[in-house]
Simulated scan of single mutants.
Amino acid sequence: MEFTSSTHYFLSILHFLERQGIPPKQALEQIDMVGFDLNNNEQRIALKQYSDLLAFAEQELAHPLIGFELGKDIKSADFGLLGYLIESATTLADAVDVLLKYDQLVANIGQASFSQQHKLARISWQPFAPCSRQVVLRNFTAWLASTRQILGRELSPTIVCFQDSWSSAEQQSLVDWFGCPVFVNCDSNSVEFPTAYLKLRFQSANPSLFTSLAELSKQQLAQITALNDNQDTKQGISQKFSSQVTSLLAELPNLTDCSITTVAQQFAISTRQLQRNLKAQGTSYAELFDRERKTRAEALLNQFIRQKFVEKKLFENNLADNQQTANNIQPINRQNMSKLSIGNIAAACGFSEQSSFNKAFHRWFNCSPSKYLKSQTLHSESKS
């Protein structure tokens, strides 16, 4: 399945940027969408292009919470047909129901689910890769912002959870606006609220219009599904190459000398043929290689953190017992080891210079490797 966004939802970002002094043409050029037809509302935008536009907005405006600002700026028209369907719902329960059914009309970039327990209801959303944290943040903020607009009330959830991390200051900004505790580094993205909210009635309720729009939404969703099914058939071979390239990179002991030419030779095809196959699926070798680097860097750093934690415990035991352990482990200079290990990790991820690794790491996780090590180490020690 091809993961896409509606034109309305994509254009709302361009309109926001234009109000900040950034012309749509400039933004589109930066994400390789020169010639994009701004007046064609029937087209769908690839998830990568949608994510790239958010990344460009974050960098150009130097705003780490750009998804938050875009979510607050949401209007019903930005959701397209689904926005008007939700507006015509009678209660919040009806709105949640159609949101779960037809969310893919706006963007089929994640899977939403709903659950109730005691007096609390929860909407969870699991994004499809490659979804950035700005994509997730915009979704959750937009949901609450549109609900507040329709109800004309400053409702607040009881808890909001994000899988991604945010700085303390950024987290506090979210707490202030959501009006409830906001947790990061969670197992899932979710918003929890009292089940009593589900009975709240919309002032814009229009049952007859709701019925008509629901039927139209059903038809449009069927069209998108059929289009994706047809696209899946055409992309079958390309998808095999994508998964095979991903598997090949994951199996390599290190990512040194992993050029696209070298990888293409492993499949006995030309570099251009591999590029065409991956492009047909909406991806590229550079994207797959970058994704493997990120995955490997995180895994190796977490392994190093666990190693440091064990060695710290052994070192403390040595001091307490005033003797060597059974493995004869000597006290170590952990600071020097940290620098050396980060360099080794950079090399294992295919970086010839640690500065390049640091830059890429900051793009992936919004912090430096050393800061990541420090925060995760403190987290591990607090759990022990």
Rank of each mutant, 00 (worst) to 15 (best):
L314H: 10
K199V: 03
W177Y: 07
L47N: 08
A286P: 07
V263F: 05
Y102T: 00
V98I: 13
Y197H: 12
P130R: 04
K371W: 11
G67P: 01
H118T: 08
L300C: 09
Q307V: 06
F162A: 05
G35T: 08
S380V: 03
A299Q: 04
R201C: 10
G71R: 02
K371S: 12
N108R: 05
N230V: 09
N322G: 05
P194N: 10
I269G: 05
A93Y: 15
S384C: 10
T246A: 10
W177G: 01
L81N: 04
G80A: 02
Q134D: 06
I123K: 11
E287Y: 13
F309S: 07
A27C: 12
F56P: 03
Q324A: 14
K359Q: 10
D97W: 02
W125L: 12
Q244N: 15
T283R: 13
S238I: 00
Q303I: 05
W177P: 00
Q324G: 11
P207W: 14
K119G: 08
N277D: 08
R363T: 13
Q104V: 09
L61E: 05
E170I: 02
E292P: 02
Q275T: 01
D164G: 09
Q303G: 03
L47Y: 14
T256A: 14
N328C: 10
L65G: 00
R201L: 08
S341N: 05
Q149F: 13
L274A: 04
I269T: 12
T225N: 06
T295I: 07
I74A: 13
T295N: 07
Q231I: 07
V34H: 15
K383T: 12
G179W: 02
I260C: 12
N358V: 04
L61T: 02
G71L: 01
F128E: 06
D97K: 12
V184K: 00
N322V: 10
F10R: 09
N318E: 01
V175N: 01
E87L: 08
E154A: 05
H8I: 04
L227N: 13
Q265K: 15
C258V: 12
S382P: 03
M33P: 07
Y9R: 14
Q376W: 13
R306I: 08
Q223P: 04
P369H: 04
P64I: 00
N254C: 10
D290F: 03
L92A: 11
Y285N: 07
G236Y: 14
T283Y: 05
S270H: 11
A360T: 01
S190P: 02
F267W: 13
I22M: 10
S341T: 13
A107I: 00
A280F: 11
